[in-house]
Computed example of a mutant assay.
Amino acid sequence: MDFSVDDTTAELAALVRDMGERLVTDDSLRELDARFGPGTESGGTDRDTARFHARYWEELVRAGVPAALAPESIGGAGLGVIGEALVLRELGRVVAPVPLSPAIRAAHLLEAAGQTDRATAVAEGREIAAVADGWSVSAPEVDWAPIADVIVRSSADGLHVTDGAAVTVERTVPVDYSCSGLVTGDPGDATALAAGALEFDALRRRVHLAAHQWGVIEAALERTAAYASTRHQFGRPIGTFQAVAARLADGSIDVDAVRLSTLRAAYELDACSGDPGPTAHAAVASAHFWACDAGHRLAHTAVHVHGGVGLDRSEPAHRYFLAAKADEFRLGGATRQLLDLGDVLATAGDPWEYSA
């Protein structure tokens, strides 16, 4: 399968990487930790105390990144889920706390529900969106809810759209100290969506998470390999010891597994024309398995090879550990993905038996 991308997608991903490497520095992340990080969990619920990289987000909006990934009907560039995955990977590489994934998802859902003006406002960054996945519990935990202007909530009867000021949000403390909160309040009336829209959004969310995990563990491996080449013990770099080198080599294989399975899942979603079947579901479950399983291994490899400094808050390595674990938890764990994949195989057979 050919995973090559067009020049527009490659240039957009390169732009996001360049801005991330310039703006999302270790110093800027330490400043965010001082707002809402270890030891400051009792911070307020406004935007000034959120672990939100406002400068990077403003630059992404100014460069038109969320708009480029919005539906084509409101000016998007038509880059598909593959384009979204490649951009989310870049956010993972610098563990950037910005609400790009919910902006993309909300823009597509709002447009599908006929709320074009609000979809455009979200895509252009004039409003920050949060997306609640289902409304089956009384107070769901929603990423980015504490700073959201609009909360989009999916349910069996359609799409609920609520102003952020119209609900109550109780700040929570995820393992990576990301911006999240429990949302209570009336979800409002539902707007019907086309068949398959919510199903497609659920799969898109999972690909976003897998792509973010790809970036996190890729950068964590690069940083760990660099550390192993400069940290000396017994008169030689620790990376020359067989046990360390073997773990790093295994990590390289894991990164490739996440990369290939995530791109395959994104490709299948783009190919299904908004109506995901067994092939798309199997591809997403496979990508999630690797993102959880490989993410777990690489997070621990990074800490173990770094030694004591791997969990020292003064060093950046701990952020990659926390980000990888948080992505693993949000994905639901490797076992959950194997169960999903097993359901597909049991009901539809091998969806790739005749694939190219």
Rank of each mutant, 00 (worst) to 15 (best):
W144D: 01
A85G: 07
T279A: 09
D256A: 15
A63E: 14
Q115F: 03
A67Y: 00
F234D: 05
L15H: 07
A119R: 01
Q213F: 03
G277V: 12
A323C: 14
S314L: 12
V65D: 03
W214D: 01
G80A: 13
V131A: 04
L338R: 15
A280C: 14
A139C: 07
R204I: 00
I104V: 15
A285L: 13
V152A: 07
Y320T: 00
G114M: 14
A130R: 04
I82T: 12
A148L: 07
G333S: 02
A257T: 08
A317F: 01
S138Y: 05
G37Y: 09
L86S: 00
S4T: 13
R223P: 02
P140C: 07
A225V: 14
S154G: 02
G185Q: 13
R47N: 04
Y177K: 12
E31R: 15
L79I: 05
T8P: 00
E170N: 12
A112R: 01
A294P: 02
L182E: 11
A291N: 08
R231V: 09
T25H: 04
R93L: 07
H318K: 08
G164H: 04
A139E: 08
H304A: 10
E31S: 10
F241L: 09
E199P: 02
V87S: 01
G37S: 12
S138F: 08
A70T: 10
L29Y: 07
T224H: 05
S286Q: 12
V131P: 02
Y354R: 15
R35C: 06
V131K: 02
A156Q: 13
R247C: 07
R35D: 04
Q233Y: 07
H53M: 12
D340M: 13
G134N: 08
A346F: 11
Q233H: 11
A166P: 05
H160T: 09
G181P: 10
L86H: 00
R153C: 01
A243N: 06
G164P: 02
D33R: 13
T262N: 13
S314M: 12
R247I: 08
A219M: 13
S261F: 02
F200N: 07
V16P: 06
L182A: 13
L29T: 06
D312I: 02
T120V: 14
L182N: 12
G188H: 01
A280E: 13
V169D: 03
V94W: 01
T172D: 10
R206D: 14
D133S: 10
R171P: 04
E218L: 15
V152E: 06
L15Q: 04
S155L: 06
F234A: 09
C179T: 11
R62P: 00
G215F: 05
F3S: 09
T49I: 11
R205C: 06
D327M: 15
V94N: 00
G125Y: 00
A326D: 15
Y56E: 11
G215M: 03
P278H: 01
R118W: 09
E58N: 15
C292I: 09
E141C: 12
A266P: 04
E11N: 14
T230Q: 08
L198C: 03
S28D: 05
R51M: 05
D186M: 15
M1N: 13
G185S: 10
L193N: 01
A299R: 11
A334S: 14
T335N: 08
T25R: 10
H306M: 10
A302K: 07
R30A: 05
T40K: 15
D254Q: 14
W290E: 11
F52A: 06
